[in-house]
Design a binder for these strands. Sequence first.
DNA 1: ATGCTGTAGTTAAGGGCTTAACTACCCTGC
DNA 2: GCAGGGTAGTTAAGCCCTTAACTACAGCAT
Lengths: 335, 335
Amino acid sequence: MPTLEDVAKRAGVSTATVSKVLSNTPYFTDATRLKVMQAVQELGYVPNLAARALSSGKTHIIAVVFPYVYEAIFTDPNIMNTLAGIEAECTTQGYNILLSTPQLASDEPDTHYQQLIQSGYLDGVIAIDSYPTASALKPVQEKGIPAVVIGYEACDYSVRHDDQAGGQKIMEHLIALGHTRFGLIEVPEDTNYGVKYRSIGVRAAAEQAGLDYDSFPRTSGDWSTHSGSRCAAALLAQHPDVTALICYNDRMAMGAIQQARSMGRAVPGDLSITGYDDIPSAVLCDPALTTISQRSPEQGRIGARLLFEVLDGTHPDPVVLDPLLIVRQSSAPRP
Amino acid sequence: MPTLEDVAKRAGVSTATVSKVLSNTPYFTDATRLKVMQAVQELGYVPNLAARALSSGKTHIIAVVFPYVYEAIFTDPNIMNTLAGIEAECTTQGYNILLSTPQLASDEPDTHYQQLIQSGYLDGVIAIDSYPTASALKPVQEKGIPAVVIGYEACDYSVRHDDQAGGQKIMEHLIALGHTRFGLIEVPEDTNYGVKYRSIGVRAAAEQAGLDYDSFPRTSGDWSTHSGSRCAAALLAQHPDVTALICYNDRMAMGAIQQARSMGRAVPGDLSITGYDDIPSAVLCDPALTTISQRSPEQGRIGARLLFEVLDGTHPDPVVLDPLLIVRQSSAPRP
DNA sequence: ATGCTGTAGTTAAGGGCTTAACTACCCTGC
DNA sequence: GCAGGGTAGTTAAGCCCTTAACTACAGCAT
């Protein structure tokens, strides 16, 4: 592999000149630039990133971290779409992405992760914390590495979507369809920051319409499709008068739909059911789900952009994205 | 950040001693080792990876690359599960994963990707080529970086699942259920290496049962759910006697199910429909899909293991995984 | 006594790049 | 005629680590 020195020799200049020309430092004649560039071309020179990193302290690598909180985290559409957005932005900016999913569940800290953070290898970190857990962020902040959070964890720089607005939108949609008797399929509030705000949004919309949120029947699932079925079964058995079921994620909504149908309720004819997240299968299932999109790819893109701004020494304000209400076939006017 | 030298001073030894103790070189007294380790502890020393990389030529970073062939690549369950497997293995081995999805579709080579490969930053590369395209592997091989392919692309070291066996298993399953009149929902053969072998497997099983594979009615979709519906519509209209529909991926199968039902065919009562891939929604949809699992997480794990073996200087044989037939509710005995 | 081998540790030479500090020169204005 | 300032490029130190080559010495056989 050719080095700076090889290029310098070939171009008949010093290594410093080559280095500076390549980094677009001013004060060089076009002739010199040309000589250097030609030598670079001819030798197929590519800078050695390790040397550059050692010398400059900049690696052009950022880490995307999300705690490994459950088996299927790599197929979580929100996380993966966020990752896609980050990737897209980093590619255009010439940054590389290092992936790390620290195991924070166990008591002992993930030493491999700690070492990575401490190693001086990372220019910055983007932490995705859709699912709360022991903080992947703490070591990063201790080390003083520029960091951006996508989600709710406390950090100077962050992006997230507005769960409260999301809850409000879905509720307003159902209210506009004439529904007044609601059931809620929730999850325990402390498992996810976002859910808390979703319910606040739902409550706000309910109260604005003069409905008593606290009197709505509700059960808690565990995000899974299966739990959605179970919750729907219990809820519909006890409260057959409910005409709209608000589920706090799509998978539970899909389970609820199956269950409702098997109990003889037409969806959306007798019963409207809504989800949250707009996962890929939301459009595939039957009936296609009315749901809320968190706009994950944009969250990723913006997160990366924020990080680059921080790396440039600016102090960008937190960004809160307005969620998208996606109306499909699972919601309809009150029977 | 403390450096080797700080540790050396504190421990009262040379930097070489510290370095060697940390890399478990023989010939040191326990006393010396202890002194060094204590100093490391006290200072919270973590080696600088850039310096180590420059000096040793080893970065402990491997790149996982998959060409960015379509928008939703980051939500492709096969790819993401493979990634999860790679991640798991790398973590246990102390390697870091750098993600790169070169844009190979356009004519001009992805210079950012080229630079990354050439930069000397990578100890190895794992290329996922579930979807064929201009090769992400070529620059890697030119550079002489150890590489493992997950898929069909030509490479000294590779893992994949056995598409032919997969095709055969699904066909044998349907034949065992008594079906004799089959329809095929394929994709154009040249879009994917695996599909070719799947059809070879299906043919083999058919011929073994004395069926004329070439006479089966067939149409080609484009992997999408929508195309599955379209294909099913055309095929069932022209060949109402078909009792089993073999689809070459799950999404088309799900589309086919919807379409068949809307045409008044009960699935699986009148018509069995099978998929391929076992995507997450395969278990959620109604009826749950009978399909084939490519065992993506294992492919990832094994791919990473192979790479580590190559890095250790051995020459592991290619691995071909036997696919898993997953029987669910979308297939049933011939009516 | 001599040379060997094995043990325990040090010295110092890189690895390839960036960049502060420096030289050398030319142009301007008074 | 000369200080001052901009232009164009070089020198060399430094980033932190690994490792080949070396020293030093103890134990042992010849």
